[in-house]
């Protein structure tokens, strides 16, 4: 456990450099600023709709993944590029433990940044609409999406120096276009896993079931989900599954491939 925590502590310091953090925090705050600007000039219902159809996809589908792409690809990728990986790998620690500790730290760092933005957006929603009870759902959705993206990007970052470019390409093509157009593969969309958790919590907290939702709210959520069923547990299991695969894959890669080039 000491080793696990030691890796988490150093990785957090490694990922949250001052300059990089400021840049990512500014990015994370963009949706909140937009919501505030729009919400102050629109009626409550329009602002709520704008939040679900515009801001939530912006948080879960753009700012969260970009933050996760940048931090996730650097988690183990930077250790390889800067050749500090020998300090980690040439120690009596199972490779899977290294991968799990790195993933935990990177998720925590990404969530601190992306979660701050989501928190600000929830506050902006509260200020403009007066609804504060969606905050929990927004934060859970952000946490779930962040974990999924970080788990994927940690592997990509380990495999290639061009992880950020590949990550952005994946975000645009797969998450943005393919899964939005083809409902058959929408369930594989990581940002929609977060959206499904959000919808699941909203449905459970307010109306008992999705069927009881006000028609316009249902329409908002349907647009958000693109055919994915709402449900926080399903989303959580999916991202935990992705994380497990990521840990096993990295363990294998660190054992089977050269640690430095």
């Amino acid at each position: 456990m000491t080793r696990f925590l030691a890796i988490i502590r150093v990785t957090l310091l490694q990922l949250i450099g001052r300059r990089r953090s400021i840049g990512l925090l500014v990015l994370a705050a963009v949706p909140a600023v937009i919501l505030l600007l729009v919400g102050l000039n629109e009626a409550d219902r329009e602002t709520e709709e704008f939040f679900r159809r515009g801001i939530l996809p912006l948080i879960l589908g753009v700012t969260v993944p970009i933050i996760a792409i940048i931090l996730g690809s650097g988690s183990l990728g930077d250790e390889r590029t800067h050749k500090t990986i020998s300090y980690l790998a040439l120690r009596p620690i199972r490779r899977e433990v290294i991968a799990a500790a790195k993933l935990s730290a990177t998720w925590l760092a990404s969530f601190l940044v992306a979660g701050s933005g989501a928190f600000l957006a929830a506050i902006a929603l509260g200020i403009t609409v007066g609804s504060w009870d969606e905050m929990f759902a927004i934060m859970v959705a952000t946490a779930i999406s962040t974990l999924g993206f970080v788990a994927v990007m940690q592997v990509v970052g380990y495999l290639t120096d061009r992880a950020v470019v590949i990550g952005l390409g994946y975000l645009l093509i797969w998450e943005g276009i393919v899964t939005g157009a083809a409902s058959a593969v929408a369930t594989t969309s990581i940002w929609r896993m977060g959206a499904s958790a959000y919808a699941g919590i909203i449905a459970g907290d307010h109306w008992g079931s999705a069927l009881g939702l006000e028609a316009r709210v249902v329409a908002d959520l349907e647009d958000l989900l693109a055919g994915v069923l709402p449900g926080v547990w399903g989303a959580l299991f999916k991202v935990l599954g992705i994380s497990a695969v990521s840990i096993v894959a990295l363990g294998y890669l660190m054992r089977d491939r050269d640690l430095v080039s």
Binding site: V10, Y87, R91, P92, I93
Partner: peptide, 8 residues
Amino acid sequence: EYGAELAG
């Protein structure tokens, strides 16, 4: 110290 912690 980090090296020592990782080495157990």
